[in-house]
């Protein structure tokens, strides 16, 4: 960990003045969005064949695949897209420093502050290049939920070949429940994420066109 007095930013931002969302990030974002939607919709189709909660049932219109066989085909095709794209994204994010630059530091006091502001309808979004604490928290949560889905998904898919993993996750049914809860977290994120991007359309446009150019770290730090 670098100490606060040492400006670590220059090593993390090799290309100052680059766009907020470089093209690899945009491609991976939309690839991930498509994979996630297919996985959620097809997952609902698979789930309905044998529900975990008897009060939760997904209607046909919300499912992908007209019946379980089709939903399974979609699910086991899209899983590769999600896993490979996610792996490339995390590798890219770690090696370019983007993950650390975008998500950290995150302070609990900032989270509370942002929540209070939001409740007073003060959504500060005039500067897209700075993520507020709640944004950071949500992105971190959803990234971990995505990783968790891959791990619990492997346990649901191969509970015998990876019986050790399945056991750690509470057996086949435990892994299945965790896989369902991970979906719930991601779906919840998706609703908030899409709603906020529609509320502040410049963020949506930034994820398509790249967004504003980043300021130098010094200016960012001075704010």
């Amino acid at each position: 960990m670098t100490s606060p007095s040492v400006p670590a930013a220059p090593t993390l931002t090799p290309a100052l003045g680059r766009k907020l969302h470089p093209w690899p990030v945009r491609i991976m974002h939309w690839t991930n969005a498509m994979a996630m939607i297919v996985l959620i919709g097809s997952g609902w189709g698979i789930y309905d064949d044998s529900v975990i909660f008897h009060f939760i049932y997904f209607p046909q219109w919300a499912r992908i695949g007209s019946w379980a066989a089709e939903s399974l085909l979609w699910h086991f095709a899209a899983m590769w897209v999600l896993a490979i794209n996610g792996f490339v994204y995390l590798t890219y994010g770690v090696f370019t420093g983007r993950l650390r630059e975008r998500m950290l530091p995150i302070r609990i006091s900032d989270v509370i502050h942002t929540v209070q502001d939001t409740l007073r309808f003060k959504i500060a979004h005039e500067d897209l290049t700075v993520y507020n604490a709640v944004q950071k928290l949500l992105y971190i949560v959803v990234i971990f939920a995505g990783i968790s889905q891959v791990i619990t998904g492997i346990a649901v898919w191969k509970p015998i070949q990876f019986s050790g993993l399945a056991e750690v996750l509470g057996g086949f049914q435990g892994a299945r429940l965790l896989h369902f809860l991970g979906m719930a977290v991601i779906t919840g994120f998706l609703i908030v994420h899409v709603a906020l991007s529609l509320l502040v359309p410049s963020t949506l446009w930034a994820m398509l066109a790249g967004g504003p150019r980043l300021k130098t770290p010094k200016l960012e730090a001075a704010e």
Binding site: V38, S66, W67, L73, A77
Partner: peptide
């Protein structure tokens, strides 16, 4: 597109749409 997902409405996957073929290839 997402819209073309709706084309897969048959009961079996012996359909010859490009999506049906791609899904079977993945399987």
């Amino acid at each position: 597109s997402l819209g073309s997902l709706a084309m897969l409405t048959g009961c079996d996957i012996s359909d010859d749409t490009s999506i049906g073929k791609a899904l079977r290839a993945m399987s």
